[in-house]
């Protein structure tokens, strides 16, 4: 009798701790989502500061591993990172807490704003302002392209892929997702051939 009640107490205590952990995860990521301007990599810097430096939930090297996975899997990087941190801390519920926590501020703010955006833009001077702002957005996109280009492994293959994608988008209405799938297949094929060639060459030398 006494033992079972102790057992129950322990389970209840554990459940309470788990619930608290989930709430902490949710609010930590809610805060990150709320103060992060600029999305993507800005959010990762904030996650690093809060999760690694402040709360010490993860070590720097664990965080680096998570970032590597987040970058080499489909999906927006910020959401990938949030999900991974959540899973590591508290399984699937933790993943849900972190991801929804990070997404909720955006959702609420944009949902509220979306009712005013159009009327706001119909004001004459706001319209003029937006003609300038559109040019600034072009600059931001160009800088993003340049930054991504710098991060691509340079080589004949990469240049050919970039040119192929540019041409196919300029000249045809080919579906973006098919273009991506073709390039993924091309990457696999290219590396397969490269390895095969290297292997046979090494074989001959021996």
């Amino acid at each position: 009798m006494n033992e079972t009640s102790n057992e129950r107490m322990r389970i209840r205590d554990g459940a309470g701790k788990f619930f608290k952990e989930i709430l902490t995860l949710f609010f930590t990521f809610f805060k990150i989502g709320l103060v992060c301007f600029g999305g993507g990599y800005t959010m990762i810097a904030l996650i690093e500061r809060d999760v690694v430096e402040k709360r010490k939930w993860l070590t720097t090297s664990e965080m680096m591993d998570i970032l590597a996975v987040a970058e080499s899997t489909p999906g927006p990087i910020s959401m990938n990172t949030a999900t991974y941190v959540g899973t590591k801390r508290a399984g699937f519920l933790g993943a849900l807490a972190c991801t929804f926590g990070a997404a909720l501020p955006s959702f609420l703010i944009i949902f509220a704003l979306s009712f005013f955006i159009e009327e706001f833009q119909n004001l004459t001077y706001v319209g003029y302002a937006f003609r300038g702002i559109r040019v600034a957005v072009l600059v931001l996109i160009l800088n993003a392209v340049l930054k991504m280009f710098r991060n691509v492994e340079k080589g004949v293959f990469s240049i050919l892929v970039i040119l192929f994608v540019l041409l196919i988008s300029l000249l045809t209405d080919f579906y973006v997702i098919y273009t991506l799938l073709i390039c993924a297949a091309a990457g696999i094929l290219y590396n397969f051939v490269l390895r095969a060639v290297r292997y046979t060459r090494g074989y001959k030398k021996r």
């Binding site: 392209v145 492994e153 970039i162 994608v165 991506l180 390039c183 091309a186 990457g187």
Partner: peptide, 24 residues
């Protein structure tokens, strides 16, 4: 395999955003 796929995907994304930049 995953690494090789991303070896092809990363330049593809550069090309796609480059095109988006041109059309915008």
């Amino acid at each position: 395999v995953v690494k090789d796929a991303f070896f092809g995907l990363r330049p593809a994304v550069v090309g796609l955003i480059g095109y988006a930049f041109l059309s915008l």
